[in-house]
Amino acid sequence: MVGLEHERPSEFYLSAWQSTRSSTPLLVWRALLFLASLGIVLTSFIMYILSPIPIGFWFIYLTHWGLTIMLFCTGFAVAVSMRCYFYGPISTEFSLPWYVKTYWVLYNASVPVAFLITVFYWTLLYSAGVSEEIGPVLDVSIHGVNSVIMFLLLASSAHASRLVHLVHPAIFACTYVVFSIIYYFAGGTDPQGNPYVYPMVNWAQPGSTMVVISVTALLLVCLHFVTVGLAAGRNALANRILRPSVTVHVDEDIALRNQTQSAVP
């Protein structure tokens, strides 16, 4: 279960909400989510370029790290769907291709991290007056719309989320913590010249910082469990609503196009 193998590769390019084997619906949907992600990231990046704040500060925030993996996640989702649209289903003879595994890792990390960024910002950073963006509209987009995009990606997928894949968001979070430590001891500052990225993650005060990190880590674990629960609920609800008499995921290697299935009453 820790590994990245799955007996039904079709669940990575077919939605739980469709009763056909066409990869087109999910491809179109994922393309829209990718374009929305790209629009948010480009707008945020361009606003920094146009502002007096040096562009290098864009890369120090956890929010922007989360936006980056969100962009790569939706991009790889589109790539998986496009591959299946043009070349047919993924064979089950061998292990999952690298691009499917890459998408899966990005998905496992980006969904709970997006939820974490939204909760962390609106509960701690917003009240503390921390401003990562130029303008309130963009602020809402990167701290709210990001979670909406990842929720829509989760809700439209079919593959399950595994509890043991908590390791993927955990690695992402640990990487950022290590970065913040290195950034502090290297003399890094926020745009206002303070010796930290976030005031509540100030390594000059390691005790309180470790408390914040521990609570945030616990929240990330909980949000991963929420992600797993949402995925399980999505599949259960889709199966109950569609009530397919013939599952569309059994014959993994049959052609995706010109394939019709008759429903048995």
Rank of each mutant, 00 (worst) to 15 (best):
90 I>K: 04
241 I>T: 09
137 V>F: 15
71 L>S: 10
40 I>W: 00
140 V>M: 14
87 Y>G: 02
104 W>L: 13
72 F>G: 13
16 A>S: 12
125 L>P: 06
123 T>F: 15
172 F>E: 05
3 G>V: 13
162 R>L: 08
111 V>C: 09
180 S>G: 10
101 K>D: 02
89 P>C: 01
179 F>K: 04
61 Y>W: 06
88 G>M: 01
128 A>C: 10
160 A>I: 14
234 R>A: 03
4 L>C: 09
54 P>A: 00
171 I>R: 07
153 L>E: 13
181 I>P: 05
18 Q>C: 07
209 T>M: 02
240 R>T: 11
167 V>F: 02
190 D>V: 02
111 V>Y: 06
31 A>Q: 00
220 L>G: 10
199 P>I: 04
89 P>N: 06
116 L>N: 01
166 L>V: 02
220 L>S: 12
185 F>I: 08
118 T>G: 10
101 K>P: 07
53 I>L: 05
243 R>Y: 13
19 S>N: 00
190 D>K: 12
183 Y>C: 08
217 A>C: 10
1 M>N: 14
140 V>W: 15
64 H>D: 00
198 Y>D: 07
33 L>R: 00
59 F>D: 04
13 Y>P: 01
19 S>L: 15
108 N>P: 04
120 F>K: 09
200 M>K: 00
72 F>C: 11
184 Y>Q: 10
26 L>S: 07
145 V>A: 12
247 T>W: 00
70 M>R: 08
264 V>Y: 11
237 L>E: 11
69 I>R: 07
82 M>A: 13
110 S>F: 03
200 M>C: 10
30 R>E: 08
147 S>K: 12
56 G>K: 08
167 V>C: 14
127 S>V: 11
246 V>M: 11
91 S>K: 02
235 N>E: 13
35 L>T: 11
95 S>T: 13
70 M>H: 11
60 I>Q: 02
54 P>W: 11
129 G>I: 13
224 H>T: 00
184 Y>S: 15
136 P>A: 14
113 V>T: 12
141 S>D: 09
240 R>D: 12
